Amino acid sequence: MGQRAARVLQPAGRSGRGVALLALTRDTSRQDALRSKGIRPLLGDLDQPATLRRLAGIATRVLHLAPPPSTPGLALDPRTMALLQVLRLRSLPFSLVYGSTSGVYGDCQGQWVAESRSVAPATERGLRRVNAERAVRFAGLRASILRIPGIYAPDREGGTPRARLLRGTQVLQADDDVYTNHIHADDLARACVLALWRGKAQRIYHVSDDTQLKMGDYFDLAADLYGLPRPPRIARELAATALPATLLSFMSESRRMRNQRLKTELRLALRYPTVLQGLKE
Rank of each mutant, 00 (worst) to 15 (best):
I183F: 08
L270W: 03
T264D: 13
K200C: 11
Y272A: 01
G150M: 11
A245S: 12
K37I: 05
L46M: 07
R35D: 07
A50D: 13
D210A: 07
A153K: 01
A50T: 15
R4A: 14
S116K: 07
Q277M: 11
G73A: 11
T60S: 15
A223Y: 04
C108L: 01
N259S: 15
E157A: 14
V171M: 12
A66L: 11
R236H: 09
A163S: 12
R4F: 14
A239F: 01
E281H: 09
A189Q: 01
L74Y: 06
L228Q: 00
G110V: 01
L266K: 06
A222V: 01
R255M: 07
T25I: 12
C108V: 03
A245W: 02
A174R: 13
P49Q: 04
L84N: 01
I183E: 00
I145N: 02
V171Q: 13
P232T: 07
W112A: 04
P121C: 11
Q170C: 14
L55R: 01
V207T: 00
A59F: 08
G158D: 06
L247P: 00
P149Q: 02
L89K: 12
R61F: 10
G150H: 08
A239T: 08
Q111Y: 02
R54W: 06
G99R: 00
L146W: 03
A82L: 08
H182A: 02
I148L: 13
A235N: 08
L166D: 08
S208C: 15
R164I: 06
H184R: 01
G216P: 00
L127A: 14
S208H: 02
G278D: 04
V97S: 05
R7K: 13
T246E: 11
G18H: 13
V62T: 07
L194G: 01
V97E: 03
P232C: 05
D155N: 13
I234Y: 09
G227E: 03
P149H: 07
M1R: 04
R54T: 15
I148H: 00
S36W: 03
M251T: 01
K200R: 15
L87K: 00
A195Q: 05
R125N: 11
L92T: 05
A143L: 07
R90V: 04
G199I: 04
P244D: 09
R54L: 12
K200H: 14
L24F: 10
D27R: 15
L89F: 09
Q170D: 09
G99H: 03
K280D: 10
L141P: 00
D224I: 06
L141V: 06
I145Q: 02
D209G: 01
R129S: 10
R14W: 14
Q173W: 03
T180L: 07
S36Y: 03
D155S: 13
S208M: 05
R53S: 15
R7T: 12
P69A: 10
A269S: 12
T211A: 10
G168N: 08
A135G: 04
G99A: 15
A75N: 10
Y218Q: 01
M251L: 15
P11I: 05
L188G: 00
